Simulated scan of single mutants.
Amino acid sequence: MEQMLRVGVITSTHGVRGEVKVFPTTDDAKRFKNLKQVILDGKEPLELSIEQVKFFKNMVILKFRGYDSINDVETWRQRDLMITRDQAVELKENEYFITDLIGLSVADDKGLELGTVKDVLVTGANDVYVVELKNGKELLLPAIGDCILEVNLEQGRMKVHVLDGLMDL
Rank of each mutant, 00 (worst) to 15 (best):
M1S: 12
K137V: 04
Q155M: 12
R31D: 05
L62K: 03
M1Y: 01
V7T: 12
H161W: 07
D72I: 09
T75G: 06
G156M: 06
L5P: 02
I70V: 15
V89K: 09
L40T: 04
V120G: 07
V60S: 06
T116I: 09
I144K: 10
L46P: 00
S69Q: 11
L40P: 02
K36R: 15
K21E: 11
R79S: 11
C147K: 00
L121F: 09
K54P: 01
D27I: 05
D86R: 05
I61R: 04
G18M: 01
R157D: 06
E154D: 13
T99M: 08
M82T: 01
P45H: 12
T116C: 02
V162S: 12
L139M: 11
A29N: 08
I98L: 09
A88Q: 10
A88Y: 01
F32M: 06
L46S: 01
G66K: 07
N71A: 12
D119A: 14
D168V: 08
L163W: 06
F55T: 08
R157K: 15
G103P: 10
N135I: 11
P24A: 13
S105Y: 06
K43Y: 03
Y96I: 08
A143D: 14
V160N: 06
A107K: 13
L62F: 02
K110A: 10
Q87S: 10
A143R: 06
L163I: 15
C147E: 05
E90H: 08
H14W: 12
V160F: 06
G165D: 08
R85E: 13
D168C: 01
C147A: 09
V151S: 04
R65Y: 06
K36N: 14
G66A: 04
L121Y: 07
A29R: 15
I83T: 03
K63C: 04
S12C: 02
L149D: 05
T123P: 00
V38G: 02
E150C: 01
Q52M: 07
N152W: 08
I102E: 02
S105N: 09
L149K: 15
L48T: 11
G136Y: 10
I61E: 04
N71L: 14
L140S: 01
V106S: 07
Y67M: 07
L141K: 12
C147R: 00
L139N: 07
Y96D: 08
S12H: 10
K137M: 10
L5K: 12
G165S: 07
Q3P: 00
S105Q: 12
V9I: 15
L81M: 05
N34E: 14
K63T: 05
E138P: 00
G15M: 05
V20Y: 03
H14L: 02
L46C: 00
I148S: 04
V53M: 05
K30T: 15
L91T: 12
N126Q: 11
S49M: 02
F55Q: 08
M158F: 00
D100W: 10
R6V: 14
